[in-house]
Amino acid sequence: MEPSADVVVLTALPVEFRAVLHLLRDQSTLVHPQGTSLVKGTLPGLGGTVAVARIGAGNLTSAAVAERVRQWLRPQALLFVGVAGGLKPEARLSDVVVSTKVYHLHPGKETPEGFHARPVSGAVSHRLEQAAGIALCSESWRKWVPDEVRATWQEDGPHVHFQPVIAGEVVLNSPVTPLRDQITFHYGDALAIEMESAGVARVVDLSEDLRILTLRGISDHADASKGEADASGSQYRASAHAAAAAAALACELLPETAGPGGSSRAVRSAGAIGEASAPEAEWVRALMAFADMGRGDFRHSLLTDMGRILGLPHAFMAAESTVARDHVREIVRRMNTYRDAPAARTALYAALENARPDDGALEGLSRLLP
């Protein structure tokens, strides 16, 4: 069976990698033929799988690895999780920033009159950003923060900001440099600076089947106090907060089995769902019988309607593919592992019935329903 993961998390530093690993259960290792290693596991209370890699710093590396895992594991979401330097006073140490835009820092033109930036705003997934807004709108996401980190809170704990970030090939350790002035002038809405997200965003620009989002903990103020902050353990705390925010986002993307506190819900296992459902291939054939199923916009509308029927704050999540049959197969897989699979199947039928009535195809699909 080909390797896969529902959510892939990329990190740059060992401290960031360990923060995500701390949350994963049932861990195993995946190794790409070219050597990239990921640890795959599950989050307590959630179905589906999460795979995390430590890839080192820099946008070039992040772009190469993001494209590699996109083709290899076909995740429904790719998250970059780690630390960043805060650029504004409201970015307190250990706060979390969720990217609404990703600026590539360095593109521009150097002239006798000075440097003229040519801002490149990288793509982030609107769907993931909206799901993060739901997941992080209350303090419940903090339940994923380890107790030893929570014990260090001296005020009201970390805040979450939804603002742009900048990614460049530089560590910024001073507030009084030409580069800092350039950032303030050209990227005044950015809250934090880091070194990897622009590469991942470029992969999305060139792809049609990957959703990405960056979640960063503020570990320093991108000034001369960075060394002191790092020595105090700020990277460890900021990494733990970013990993906790990513886990809370995963709760919006993956089917539930039990909450992080151990309270279970009435959810059937994926195996039990498979036993109660027709074989996957039959579902795929029945769905491909709809004449419009080969169109990407039709499938996207279908997922949006399923989410609405199920009462979700976002579309029903299924990893995209440019190949219609592969996308349909992923929709079926996600439907069969959803926390209430019969409801997902009913929602799929209702969405198709509303979208484009096709009596023949609907009749074939109805035979697969309980």
Score class of each variant (00 low, 15 high):
residue 1 M to E: 06
residue 3 P to L: 07
residue 12 A to G: 09
residue 14 P to V: 03
residue 15 V to G: 02
residue 16 E to F: 03
residue 18 R to L: 09
residue 22 H to N: 08
residue 24 L to T: 09
residue 28 S to A: 14
residue 35 G to Y: 09
residue 35 G to D: 03
residue 47 G to Y: 08
residue 48 G to W: 00
residue 49 T to K: 05
residue 54 R to H: 09
residue 55 I to V: 13
residue 55 I to C: 03
residue 56 G to F: 08
residue 59 N to T: 13
residue 62 S to M: 10
residue 67 E to R: 09
residue 68 R to W: 11
residue 72 W to Y: 04
residue 73 L to R: 08
residue 76 Q to T: 03
residue 77 A to Y: 10
residue 93 L to R: 09
residue 94 S to A: 13
residue 97 V to N: 01
residue 97 V to R: 01
residue 98 V to D: 05
residue 105 L to C: 04
residue 105 L to S: 04
residue 108 G to M: 00
residue 108 G to W: 00
residue 109 K to H: 15
residue 111 T to A: 08
residue 111 T to H: 01
residue 116 H to N: 02
residue 116 H to S: 11
residue 118 R to L: 13
residue 119 P to K: 00
residue 119 P to Y: 00
residue 120 V to R: 10
residue 121 S to N: 09
residue 122 G to C: 02
residue 127 R to W: 06
residue 131 A to D: 12
residue 131 A to Q: 14
residue 132 A to C: 04
residue 133 G to T: 06
residue 134 I to V: 14
residue 135 A to Y: 10
residue 137 C to N: 12
residue 140 S to R: 10
residue 141 W to P: 03
residue 141 W to K: 01
residue 142 R to D: 07
residue 148 E to V: 15
residue 150 R to M: 14
residue 154 Q to L: 12
residue 154 Q to T: 14
residue 155 E to Y: 11
residue 156 D to S: 08
residue 158 P to K: 00
residue 159 H to Q: 13
residue 159 H to M: 08
residue 159 H to V: 07
residue 161 H to R: 06
residue 162 F to Y: 14
residue 166 I to R: 01
residue 172 L to N: 04
residue 173 N to R: 15
residue 177 T to L: 02
residue 179 L to I: 12
residue 181 D to A: 01
residue 183 I to G: 00
residue 190 A to E: 04
residue 192 A to I: 01
residue 193 I to G: 02
residue 198 A to E: 04
residue 198 A to N: 04
residue 200 V to C: 07
residue 201 A to V: 08
residue 206 L to R: 14
residue 210 L to E: 07
residue 212 I to G: 10
residue 215 L to K: 02
residue 217 G to R: 04
residue 220 D to S: 09
residue 220 D to R: 09
residue 222 A to S: 13
residue 222 A to G: 10
residue 226 K to F: 04
residue 232 S to Y: 03
residue 235 Q to F: 00
residue 239 S to C: 07
residue 240 A to T: 11
residue 242 A to S: 05
residue 242 A to P: 10
residue 243 A to Q: 04
residue 245 A to W: 15
residue 247 A to N: 03
residue 249 L to R: 07
residue 257 T to V: 12
residue 267 V to S: 10
residue 274 G to V: 07
residue 277 S to K: 05
residue 281 A to L: 12
residue 281 A to K: 04
residue 284 V to S: 08
residue 288 M to E: 13
residue 288 M to Q: 15
residue 289 A to H: 12
residue 290 F to Q: 00
residue 291 A to M: 03
residue 296 G to K: 12
residue 299 R to C: 07
residue 300 H to V: 13
residue 303 L to G: 02
residue 311 G to C: 05
residue 313 P to Y: 03
residue 314 H to Y: 00
residue 315 A to C: 01
residue 316 F to V: 05
residue 316 F to T: 02
residue 317 M to P: 01
residue 327 H to L: 01
residue 333 R to S: 06
residue 334 R to Q: 15
residue 339 R to T: 13
residue 343 A to M: 01
residue 343 A to H: 04
residue 345 R to K: 13
residue 347 A to F: 09
residue 349 Y to D: 05
residue 351 A to W: 01
residue 354 N to T: 15
residue 355 A to T: 06
residue 356 R to M: 07
residue 359 D to N: 13
residue 359 D to S: 12
residue 362 L to H: 05
residue 364 G to F: 03
residue 365 L to T: 02
